[in-house]
Amino acid sequence: MSGPPDKPRLSRTHMLDLLKQMIRIRLFEDKCAELYTQEKIRGFLHLYDGEEAVAVGVIPLLTKDDRVVATYREHGHALVRGISMKSAMAEMYGKRDGCSRGRGGSMHLFDRATNFYGGNAIVGGGLPLAVGLALAGRMRAEKNITVCFFGEGAVAEGEFHESLNLAALWELPVLFVCENNLYAMGTALAISEAETDIHAKAACYRIASEVVDGMDVVAVEAAARRALQTIRETGKPYFLECRTYRFRAHSMFDAQLYRDKAEVEMWRKKGPIERLRAWLEANHMIHPDELAQINAEVGAEIAEAVAFAEAASWEPVEDLTRFVYAEAGR
């Protein structure tokens, strides 16, 4: 991204780009849900529906050398970071051409080329890794930043507290991004945390923090810009809480007994895609044709990705035990 790092860029093309990236994630995942019911995608599938503004607001601001650590709800992060839709889709199918050779699946997208250090399916498990990645960067006098995404459920884990303390103590360039969607599976924030103002917790570790409306991609981007700028200046960690909401079930196995439909509907109206589109329309910054074109382009990319995943080959069973250890001379 060009332009002054500390100023939000409200140009029309930029806004359309943000919209397109969010739609791209949304439609990709809609397709994934469909493929799940067709049993093309198996296992756990956690959708990011409603939370797209977070990944889209933060990740494009990173440089190539910056590093990303994410959770099992990471399809959006992977796509925005530059993992091709084809290899992500093939991974969900479990095919060899997937970004993790099919061995990871939906929850474990990895990509060395884009410094994408994985979907981690242990709640809180990615935070210590992020600290270590940043420590390595610091010890080798590199200038990169490590961004670590996690849900508010992770805040109750010991690894969260250990990692914040280590990052602050050792002054490591980590951007902690808490995607607070108010529920950890069926457990509402209010019944799991004594202090529900998550970003306030960062103060215990003397980490600068900010809370932002995670449904507003422009606000997320502006906050992330400030955060990254601060980290680049100080070399110290920063904590960004994005208040958001997940519209769909936690994963595909979830009867959603813990919240009522009216609540979900209320949040849907505040959805990040809805919101940006309405704003662009109100300000005459988007033409219906342009929206149609975005949908068509994304639709074509998805169709290609599905075709690729369908045609991709399976890892031969003879290779089952490969890649447990490094292979000499291979």
């Binding site: 590093r67 250090y117 498990g125 935070l127 210590p128 890794l129 992020a130 600290v131 270590g132 990645l133 940043a134 420590l135 390595a136 960067g137 010890m139 080798r140 010991g158 690894e159 250990e162 990692s163 303390n165 280590l166 103590l169």
Partner: peptide, 22 residues
């Protein structure tokens, strides 16, 4: 390190992934 076995062991994993030999 502080008394954070999981935290610093995980940091070792991350540092190793990023090219160090902890």
């Amino acid at each position: 390190t502080p008394l954070s076995e999981s935290g610093f062991t995980g940091a070792g994993v991350g540092a190793a992934m990023a090219g160090m030999r902890p």
